[in-house]
């Protein structure tokens, strides 16, 4: 059971990194939209796991993407931040329910799931594009990229989410 769990997460990690760097990094929709559906890994990752391990895995995931896309450590900085912020966001979205032992992502309403995902994406993209441009003189450019890439990422994440939904008892 547990080894199966690790195995699934490992496969997910590898596949999402490969799909991200081989497909979505070279999409360049309208010339600048490169959605980042690899965030789904942090969305799907089991809730009850050790937090420091989760943050470390988030860092590793970002670093893997950086490895391929020549973005220094921008992805790592953004993923480690959302990995750290995830419990706060969850408490905000799901309320106290989330503290219960029986809490499951699949038991929540669709709106809650989408809000949770959207907040993760917004936090990730704001950090990523702000660091990428590294100056506030391009504020408009940053905003434009955050909004459009964010929308594209959200749509793709929802599509992936419904494609590979975890149907467990």
């Amino acid at each position: 059971m547990t080894s199966n769990y690790y195995f699934i997460n490992f496969i997910r990690f590898t596949l999402l990194v490969l799909v991200q760097v081989l497909v979505f990094n070279r999409l360049n929709f309208f010339g600048f939209i490169n959605p980042m559906p690899y965030i789904l890994f942090l969305y799907w990752y089991p809730i009850k796991e050790n937090r420091s391990v989760f943050i470390f895995i988030g860092f590793l995931l970002g670093l893997c993407i950086d490895f391929f896309s020549d973005t220094m450590a921008l992805h790592a900085a953004s993923t480690v931040t959302i990995a750290y912020l995830r419990p706060t966001i969850m408490r905000f979205v799901f309320g106290v329910n989330y503290e219960f032992q029986s809490f499951k992502l699949s038991n929540t309403t669709r709106v809650q799931q989408i809000t949770f995902l959207t907040l993760l994406i917004i936090a990730h993209h704001v950090i990523f594009f702000a660091l990428e441009n590294f100056s506030f003189s391009n504020l408009l450019l940053i905003l434009k990229k955050v909004i459009f890439t964010g929308i594209a990422t959200l749509i793709l994440c929802l599509l992936f989410g419904s494609l590979f939904s975890v149907k467990k008892e």
Partner: peptide, 15 residues
């Protein structure tokens, strides 16, 4: 929090 800050500084350092 300390782990987070450490990893964040590592990545910012690289950047």
């Amino acid at each position: 929090t300390l782990l987070y800050l450490l990893l964040l500084f590592i990545s910012l350092g690289f950047t």
